[in-house]
Amino acid sequence: MYFVYDIGGTFIKFALMEQNGTIKMKDKFPTTAKSAEELVRQMVEKWLPYKQEVTGIAVSCPGVVNTETGVIYQGGSLVFMHEKNLAEMLARECHVPVVLQNDAKSAALAELWLGVAKDVDSAAILTLGSGVGGGIIMNGKLQSGFHLMAGEVSFIETSFDTEKLRGKFFGRTGSAVELIKRIATKKNLADKKDGEQVFALINEGDEEALTIFDDYIYRLASQVLNIQYLIDPEIIAIGGGISAQPIVAERLNEAIEEIKAKNPFHAASPKIVSCRFRNDANLYGALYNFFLQKVG
């Protein structure tokens, strides 16, 4: 059995999983730690009741991750994890092998292992959440890049101000959380994070909701085309909570064709699919990463 963590900015999920990916137990707790040491204490507390069954620990976490050393850089929303060796800290407490992977790359690995990228040679996986996570698969393998930042599409600038020398990041313009917030604010919804209510409005054809949604989709479509030109993957898979809504992939494909019709120089024809894994993607990907790092 393997103990798997998915460290997020709001919650930390944990699961007891079999080698084939079967989840035997799953739970979560709020992300409240203010230091690496406190985080490790909380994680070990959840592992303790299962320690006799566990032969390895797999972790999905934010930040730039060196999978060979277990060191995290930047730390994403958990800035206190910068330059901390979480793998070493956990292994010291639990006395089993510990392997780490970036959260977006974990989501990509889930699709490579058991999802829509299982039988393709190349793919780009985009997870639409508070930002935009990315993973690149070439020749059937996840790409890390020289600086471990391959697929970090959140930092792609979608516009640029030459006076301020800064632009808007794709992580902001492609944020599903921001999309939902914009529509919820426009429609005076009480809960500005209620994605179900927002997509009910979109699917019902609410004009104001559709205007904001279409603006989002066109911006996303332009970046999908850029990615297609850059690495020319067989598929581009859309993940994250909103990928469960069929209208996202449908409207994205339509928007790409509309953009191409308006710009005859466009030659790319990206194949857009929805990811198989959503909320549990990082758990599956972290476990698969454990096998890749430990078994080869």
Rank of each mutant, 00 (worst) to 15 (best):
G140Q: 10
V99F: 08
A190H: 12
R41G: 09
V54C: 11
R278K: 14
Y229M: 02
H95S: 13
S243N: 03
I202E: 00
A108C: 13
E207C: 03
F265Y: 14
L210A: 05
I238T: 00
Y216I: 04
T173W: 00
F170L: 15
N279P: 06
G195A: 15
K28A: 08
P270Y: 01
A268Q: 15
E196T: 11
E208M: 09
R276V: 08
L287A: 00
Q223K: 12
K260G: 08
H266K: 02
K51F: 02
G76K: 09
N253V: 14
S130P: 04
M1V: 10
H266S: 01
C61E: 10
D280W: 03
G63N: 10
L48C: 01
T211V: 09
L128V: 02
V198I: 11
V295G: 07
F291N: 06
T55W: 06
R278D: 01
S243Y: 11
G75W: 11
I256L: 00
D119W: 01
N20P: 00
K294P: 03
A123M: 09
P264A: 05
P270V: 06
A15G: 03
K168R: 14
G171S: 05
I202R: 06
H95D: 14
S269R: 14
G70W: 10
K13S: 11
D280M: 12
A281I: 05
K34E: 13
M17I: 11
T31R: 07
V4H: 06
A267K: 15
A221Y: 09
A267I: 10
I236M: 06
K51Y: 07
S222E: 15
I202H: 06
Q197A: 15
V116W: 05
G171A: 14
K164A: 15
G131D: 05
L201A: 11
E234C: 03
D280K: 06
A281G: 07
Q42I: 08
